[in-house]
Amino acid sequence: MTTLDPTMGMRRSQLYRRHINNNAVFKKTGSDFVVSHYDNGNNQRTELDQARSMAICDLSTLSRTGFKGAGAPIWAESQGVKLPDRANRAIVQPDGCLVAKLSDQELLILSDILAKSHQVTALGEQSTSDHLENDTQTYLLPRGDSHCWLAVTGNQAAEMFSKVCGVDLRSHKFALGNIAQTSVAKTNAIVIRQDLGQTLSYFILCDISATEFLWDCLLDAMQEYAGSPVGIRALEQLVASQ
């Protein structure tokens, strides 16, 4: 078996060197690479345990898209997308992907972490052709490249966030599906509460050029909670253990 290496692919997470240095074992989703898990020798603690208490995971190569424009919500609904009832809320679609409403004219769509959803790519292509044909006032946003996508998981996550973010993200104040467009470690970011299984979890998307900076800041902040990076396998286990 050949070892998978992210440089075999064309799209590379800004963090892939950090993953390699951390003994990452990669897996392929579509044509892109994500960290399955890290090979940490005889470390007793499983990544699943880690993810339940305090962990961070890089999902930047998973698919996501966005639509903006006066007609975007109406067009999305015409495509069968279930819309959140107000801005700064996100809801899960029947096929597993997550639709986040960032304003009255802007949607962000994240594939489910098991990457079973095909809606993301399909919608992207559809929006462009629909718009060209009859001005739907719906414009595609390259969310897969404008923002990184990290998951922060575990029951210590809110406490950790309070060291880097001025919005109260504690679970009883920041409900499932809530969105905060805010500053995290002085970097603009979109924070979405999206629990994985029963585990308190957040997706955080920041300007992709600042990915490494934010990753390092979050790792530093989670040090006192014994947090560490985990691969997507641990997140899949969180979802499965529901």
Partner: peptide
Amino acid sequence: FYPARRSNMHYRHLEAGAEMLQAGAW
């Protein structure tokens, strides 16, 4: 926090012997 921004080619520059400078956060 002093945000730092890097291009996706950042490490190629380092490998090619670049002397980096910071322009704003970049």
